[in-house]
Write a protein that binds this DNA or RNA. Sequence first.
DNA 1: TAGGCCATGTAATGTGTTACATGATTAG
DNA 2: CTAATCATGTAACACATTACATGGCCTA
Lengths: 205, 205
Amino acid sequence: MSLDHILLGLLREPATGYDLKNAFSENVRHFWSAELSQIYPTLKRLEQRRMLRSRLEPSPKGPNRRVYTLTDEGRKELMRWLRGGPAVGTERFAYLAQLYFMDAVGDIDETRAFMTALRDHLSRWLAQLWAVEREVIAAYGDAPERYSGAGFHQFAALRMGIHSVGSKVAWCDETLAAIDRRLASMPHAATAAGTEPDDREESPS
Amino acid sequence: MSLDHILLGLLREPATGYDLKNAFSENVRHFWSAELSQIYPTLKRLEQRRMLRSRLEPSPKGPNRRVYTLTDEGRKELMRWLRGGPAVGTERFAYLAQLYFMDAVGDIDETRAFMTALRDHLSRWLAQLWAVEREVIAAYGDAPERYSGAGFHQFAALRMGIHSVGSKVAWCDETLAAIDRRLASMPHAATAAGTEPDDREESPS
DNA sequence: TAGGCCATGTAATGTGTTACATGATTAG
DNA sequence: CTAATCATGTAACACATTACATGGCCTA
């Protein structure tokens, strides 16, 4: 149900489906994304439910633009969602699942390569977030408590990304260090045959 | 595609759909979850694709159990997934989206209540993760680099949860402090009318 | 005897991705 | 002339949730 609400949120300014797709690419991509093929039907549905109204406008280039605006109904629904308390969904981390099962590969060097690739990905992401933060601070100063209402909330969301991704990079480093200690203390494990488990102990749950 | 692989991972030991559901509740719930109504059709599909084989067994209580076991095909597919590099999907945070748009409510006290509720939720979760960590350390010692292969990987996954959720709690505290500074420096904003924007500045992107 | 656990599934609906299909305008 | 951007959408498929449907055994 969340794409509905995110579109309602973005549509506090009138926009077309195409505009909204671009809004995702710009500021919102760090916590949500959606394809045009999902956005168009969703907008249509929201209009049927009277949350949105649309009008066709000629476009300087390309076909006519269908510009959506929020109705009072839509604004009310947005407020209901915002006031309903934090929507803590079941977060899913496919790469954690991979790591969890990766002992099946039987070669800790593969785990090491996996963690290195993950660290690389995460640290690029973190660098992007830092760049955005620097731009914001350059434009609006380093005291977010004095930003506009929207600015304050958007900066807070950005800060969560920085905390969260940063902590994952730190976790990668911790795990890589543990892998290296493991390699140092049991060097044979690294080259053990893949399919035979090299231990019979019970594993921590 | 990931539930498929997670079931393959869990099925290194033969199990029924019901067993797998319980496995989710026990150790895997921190990074994935699934309902029985999703698990049963997925197992059936995996069997059609020759990744799994099943046999019926009488059960001491209740109806016959359909026990699934991994085929060579299935084991290969699991390895392909594990060796394919980290599956970094688009992570979605509905509560971040809420925060991002929450200036629409026009009352920073509501943002404060929101962040307090979120902090509460996250710190409970963190406490659970710490409890699991304490149990593991009590059972297997505090040197994870000497755990079994499975234990080492599972502990690493647990550590990511601790880093990640912990950093979010820290972010909640940072944000709550910023809210309080904001309330102290512009006390009127807290009681401003909800629907009128109290500023016309551009907001940080 | 009531409620929980064991154990199976189906149906309906909702959410999201990938591929397909079209066509004008503009910048290099 | 070619590729990107603007701008619309549909169709097929994949993934996930909620509700429905059944029924025996065990414990309080």
